[in-house]
């Protein structure tokens, strides 16, 4: 037993030592699932000698929760969506990047260089942008799908076969579009109606799942799925006969961003990684993999030309506006949380 303990302690010391030694060339990324191609991370390691460790999450909210629960100080960068950048900044979770720290900062496309969620790109760089609405199986339904009724007031063929994203932000924003009310409405009647509408709609939903949003469409487990545009395109390529909708009521537009986290253990490497992702060739690799759009200039020659002609990338003439998810006040958020719990009880 003594011997066992001795070797146990030795092993422990060994790993602790190993961790410390390796820490010089480390980078810890907190990233969405199935978003960045493995080959790109390998290329980064090859070019810089920095070892990358990656954890994944399936919603902005889940990432925030984990960072709040002690994750700050252990990750270097994460990839929040637009509204989540604003929330994280407000929470003091972001580190600011001084002028000149990013040598490729000039590559940022002008339209994304000064977004309202991070004025002047103080702590973030653009990653990918796209849209969220839903995809419908054309095997199951051949009627008009350009309406949010498909999700919230579905025709008989689709009832009970709908998968929603397990993400409060996306579901509530879509529901607000469906009802034609502003996001984060403070109007009590509107909030009550929103709650009632979702309660009614829930009866027709089969599941809440973000990570399997694509898989359920490919496997046929769901006939309708709330989904991101690139993910819907991948589902189609993997054999699902689905069509991505741009409802007339509007759809969600988003931009994911790479942010520098406060107390990043490897701040230098994080900046190297951000510079790496500002190279048109590298960020285009993400675009080709995830099938969204980059926010960097000069990517055209690296991006698969077929992407531009995808139906998922091209809203039809009658499509409603693309809206960004808004950050609600604490009071409204409390009501939203209540509605969300009601939805899942």
């Amino acid at each position: 037993m003594k011997h066992l303990m001795k070797s146990g302690v030795a092993a422990l010391a060994l790993t602790v030592g190993a961790n410390a030694a390796a820490a010089e060339g480390e980078l810890v990324i907190y990233h969405w699932f199935e978003y960045i191609p493995q080959e790109l991370l390998e290329k980064f390691t090859e070019e810089t000698g920095i070892n990358v460790t990656m954890d994944t999450y399936d919603s902005n909210e889940a990432m925030l929760a984990s960072l709040k629960a002690g994750g700050i100080g252990t990750y270097d960068v994460s990839v929040p969506g637009d509204y989540m950048v604003a929330i994280m900044a407000e929470e003091g979770m972001l580190d600011s990047i001084a002028d000149g720290e990013l040598k490729n900062k000039g590559n940022i496309a002008p339209e994304w260089a000064d977004p309202n969620f991070d004025p002047g790109r103080q702590s973030s760089i653009p990653y990918q942008w796209g849209s969220t609405s839903f995809a419908v199986s054309r095997d199951a339904y051949d009627g008009d799908i350009q309406t949010t009724d498909i999700l919230f007031n579905p025709p008989a063929e689709l009832q009970g076969r709908i998968n929603m994203l397990d993400s409060q932000g996306e579901v509530m924003a879509m529901a607000s579009l469906h009802m034609g009310i502003p996001q984060c409405s403070t109007d009590r009647e509107q909030l009550k109606a929103l709650n009632a509408m979702l309660q009614e709609a829930k009866q027709h939903w089969a599941s809440f799942n973000s990570d399997t949003a694509k898989e359920v469409l490919v496997s046929g487990d769901a006939a309708v799925g709330q989904i991101y545009d690139g993910f819907a395109a991948k589902a189609r390529e993997e054999g699902a006969n689905v069509e991505y909708a741009y409802p007339t009521q509007g759809y969600i537009a988003w931009m994911d961003n790479v942010v520098l986290l406060k107390d990043a253990p490897n701040r230098e490497n994080a900046l190297i990684f951000m510079d790496f992702l500002l190279e048109p060739e590298n960020i285009a690799a993400v675009t080709n993999f995830a099938q969204y759009n980059a926010g960097v200039t000069g990517t055209e020659s690296f991006v698969d030309p077929e992407l531009a002609t995808q139906p998922e990338k091209n809203p039809h003439a009658d499509a409603g506006p693309g809206v960004f998810i808004e950050v609600c006040s604490e009071e409204v958020q409390a009501v939203y949380d209540q509605i969300w719990t009601n939805l899942k009880k």
Partner: peptide, 19 residues
């Protein structure tokens, strides 16, 4: 678990969640 520290079950769960 902390940042980037995975055990087999958590790594499997991460993969399995997407199908």
């Amino acid at each position: 678990k902390g940042a980037g520290v995975e055990t087999l079950p958590t790594a499997i769960f991460g993969s399995v969640k997407q199908g």
